[in-house]
Nucleic acid binder design. Sequence first.
DNA 1: TTGCAATCCGGACCGGCGGTCCGTATCTTC
DNA 2: GAAGATACGGACCGCCGGTCCGGATTGCAA
Lengths: 202, 202
Amino acid sequence: MADRKPRKDAARNRASLLAAAEELFASRARPEDVTMSDVAAAAGVGKGTLFRAFGDRTGLIRALYAARLEPVEEAVTAGPPPLGPDTPPLERVPAVLDALLCLKIDNRHLALALEATGSDSPYDADHYERWHGLLRDALEQVPGFGDVDGDGSGDFAAHALLAAVRADLVEHLVGVRGVERERLRSRLADFTARVLGQRSEA
Amino acid sequence: MADRKPRKDAARNRASLLAAAEELFASRARPEDVTMSDVAAAAGVGKGTLFRAFGDRTGLIRALYAARLEPVEEAVTAGPPPLGPDTPPLERVPAVLDALLCLKIDNRHLALALEATGSDSPYDADHYERWHGLLRDALEQVPGFGDVDGDGSGDFAAHALLAAVRADLVEHLVGVRGVERERLRSRLADFTARVLGQRSEA
DNA sequence: TTGCAATCCGGACCGGCGGTCCGTATCTTC
DNA sequence: GAAGATACGGACCGCCGGTCCGGATTGCAA
């Protein structure tokens, strides 16, 4: 927070690095095919600069992903329905999951790179905690999701629903098996509706 | 199949390697903390022997996991209900998922190591294909799972249900958050029942 | 403009990993 | 017991993420 303003060249290099990394992760098939040296070279910059700017590989990917995630988080925490906090749970849960799915589809290279960092599981990420808490709270307002004993079944259901939009699953369906975006959204909506106890509309 | 019988020392070394690897993956916190050299050293064997026996790291882990997976696959493909093929879908789907969950809980170190191979996503594993096909077929026999158009919603639901028992989620719940085995099984059963359209029994 | 200190650059360098290679030791067969 | 086939083992390789520090840039002050 109290950081001094960075030097102009530092800011410029940081931007080039982000752009180059974006490019590379999008073009190469698998995230691990993109090395740090590649990124530095593509940005026309030395490796030292890369690591000073982002700390380590995880930091780079997080910085990339955060830019894409932020608008969604904004819409969910302070936006209008159907994503914002003033939405009844039965509407909000599917809306949030759909938003996450779209995010993963549109940025599946980045999301895949983030989950494939190796060293830490996706469940250690701080934003996972937020999504899970949000869904759990919403689910437990739905009649039928037990909250009599310790941790209600909403807790696990939130985990399970989030697992359904994990990056590598999305990549497998969209990237490998060629499922179209809208079809996948529709399938997820069906599934979510089932979990919420609504009859299938077919 | 038509392989000649291996030499005696080869067989013995293979066994020591499997035992040593098992031990190491169980004792170290994260799978990537176990190096191939560690395994070879712990088995009292050279690295060359390790790689000749299993090809590469993935081969080693697959060999370990296959031994644990095989009884379950046997029970599902040719055993009695509630796992075997003579089980009505509404019973078989939760039974299979529960069996998978138990497998992941009891061998979460191995399952984690397998999913964390990095190079290939879990969705490329041949046994994933089998589990998914099994669940999809069972689900599509359940009234309400659409099969009128191309790929029914059972296809995605099968993916989503399998995602709920992924190794790193199980590890997060059991290993990190300390959820007890029976509680987790119960939560998964609740969730599965919901997906199958059954009312919650609470 | 000029001088100076703070900041940043960049690529040689490091430790460790998965995986290979081949001279040597061991097993099997006759 | 000898000879051929097979396996052993650890030095070795290429590569990757990450570090380091002498030298170049930049911002500030005079």
